[in-house]
Simulated scan of single mutants.
Amino acid sequence: MTYIETDQGWFYLAAVMDLYSRRIVGRAMADHLRADLPLAALRMANSAQRLGAGLIRHYDRGVQYASADYRTLMQSVGLRASMGRKGKCYDNAPMESFFHALKTELVHDRHYATRAEATRDIFAYIEAFYNRNSSPSALSARSRWS
């Protein structure tokens, strides 16, 4: 999960990446960091991709991912859990790379008066730009999104 500043206060984004395609297949945005935020992103990923038994879901050590509801959904879908090791930032490097790209290519150049403005921009960035250019070779050669 990452955060975005708006005049209305902090705004949070949870995302699920398919590591094979490097596409964001699930996302959720809210004004809180409660467990239902990453749960909504995982539900979206499952609806979009029909996640299957045996797939591995990697996540960081955030308390939201350890919630009973999150673990129950993972179990019902058949996902295997992979939690990052304490102090090992590289375990979650693909997601951190996405969040860095989002912030440097979009968020840091914008001023958001409302969370609704941030939602529209982030949705457009993910769906119209990032997911269409998300292969590793495309990302290394891409130009700045604006």
Rank of each mutant, 00 (worst) to 15 (best):
S47Q: 15
G62R: 07
P38F: 08
L42Y: 03
D36N: 11
S76E: 15
V63N: 12
V107F: 03
F11E: 09
Y59Q: 05
D91R: 04
V16I: 15
Y70T: 04
S82L: 09
A14P: 04
A14E: 10
Q49V: 01
T114F: 09
L106F: 03
S21Q: 06
K88S: 13
L19F: 03
V77M: 05
Y65N: 06
R57N: 14
R34A: 15
L55Q: 11
M17V: 12
D109I: 02
R115V: 11
A48V: 13
R110A: 14
L55M: 13
G87S: 11
N46T: 10
I56A: 10
T72V: 11
M74T: 09
M74E: 03
I56N: 10
S76C: 14
N92C: 06
S21D: 01
Q8V: 13
L37N: 01
T72S: 02
D18T: 00
L73V: 03
L55R: 04
M74P: 04
R43E: 06
R115K: 12
F99M: 14
M95P: 00
Y112P: 09
Y65T: 03
M83H: 00
Q49A: 07
Y70D: 07
R61T: 02
H108K: 10
F11C: 04
E117P: 10
G26D: 07
V77Q: 11
M74V: 02
A14R: 04
D109M: 12
R43A: 07
L51P: 02
R115S: 07
K86R: 14
G62V: 07
L102E: 08
L42V: 08
L42I: 08
A14T: 02
R80Y: 12
L55T: 05
Y90L: 15
Y112V: 13
T114E: 01
I56S: 10
Y65A: 11
K88F: 09
D69W: 00
Y12W: 02
R80F: 07
E105C: 13
D36C: 10
V16W: 04
D36E: 14
I56T: 15
H32G: 09
A68R: 12
Q75G: 11
Y90D: 00
L19D: 02
D31F: 01
L106E: 11
D109W: 12
M29R: 10
F11L: 13
